[in-house]
Nucleic acid binder design. Structure first.
Lengths: 140, 140
DNA sequence: CTTGACTCTGTACAATAGTACGGAGTTTAT
DNA sequence: ATAAACTCCGTACTATTGTACAGAGTCAAG
């Protein structure tokens, strides 16, 4: 596959593929020694698709690079990989908790909506500032 | 409160507060008519804290602005707010699903780790590329 | 074997999200 | 009442994540 095919199959522009190469997010295949174009494996398409999906979930390219470096293969130190995976898992779990708070706040807002007058219910801000709401008097 | 206090309480720099003002993410209080510094309400601190938390969850400032505009108060059209909240809710629910896929992939990688030889189990990529794995036959 | 499409390299431009700084005005602590 | 600390305003610089383009080389179809 040439770079144009990779770009088309993964839904990005050629320039974006090259950009990811410069950033070492995908490997650049060697140039054929007697002229011609670089040949890309199918794997590159999968990596780029992963990158784009992960970006939509809010990961930066640096974070994605870290995620992509977590592979159990014969060449990697198992304990090291596992520790780094655990760190990433903790981060992601925290993110999911935060997202769920916003999700809950939106659900509350939607259900509160049709039956109210002037109550000023449920600014989204409460979704995240959740602690500190009951400083004294009522316990959680 | 002057801007420096706001910055300190919300954990950002003064320049960042001004930046958010320029972007209309927080309101800029009026300048006292006969000289002096602007006075900020506590609410500004809460908004900035929300902004920073939401950013950590992967929302852009534009998305955060949209979230912050979803408030049930007497001045807003209830049906409009509800519809926009529903759109945001769908987006966030989809994000949570995607994050959970990565979470599961990391968990699998971590548990697979201690007892393997050369299996090349569980690249994170599988977390997202889940569909499309078996289109025809078993040759891959 | 020419033409058009594609690749390669390098550089430049763009949007988002800040961060830094200069110079003037204001407040406050000593 | 003066110096330190802070505010205000504008501009400019940074990093991330791309996009665009110029000019030369390469490939493949008619």
């Amino acid at each position: 596959m040439t770079i144009g095919k990779v770009a088309k199959k993964s839904g990005v522009g050629v320039e974006t593929v090259r950009f990811y190469e410069r950033k070492d997010l995908v490997a650049q295949p060697p140039k054929p020694p007697f002229g011609g174009f670089r040949i890309y494996p199918e794997e590159t398409v999968e990596r780029i698709r992963f990158i784009r999906q992960a970006q939509k979930l809010g990961f930066s390219l640096l974070e994605i690079k870290e995620l992509l470096s977590l592979r159990l293969d014969p060449a990697s130190n198992c304990a090291d990989i596992r520790d780094r995976a655990q760190v990433k898992l903790n981060e992601i779990t925290r993110k999911i908790v935060g997202m769920k708070r916003i999700q809950t706040a939106l659900e509350k807002l939607i259900t509160a909506c049709p039956g109210q007058g002037a109550i000023q219910v449920c600014s989204i801000i409460d979704a995240i500032e959740a602690p500190e709401k009951t400083k004294e008097g009522e316990k959680s």
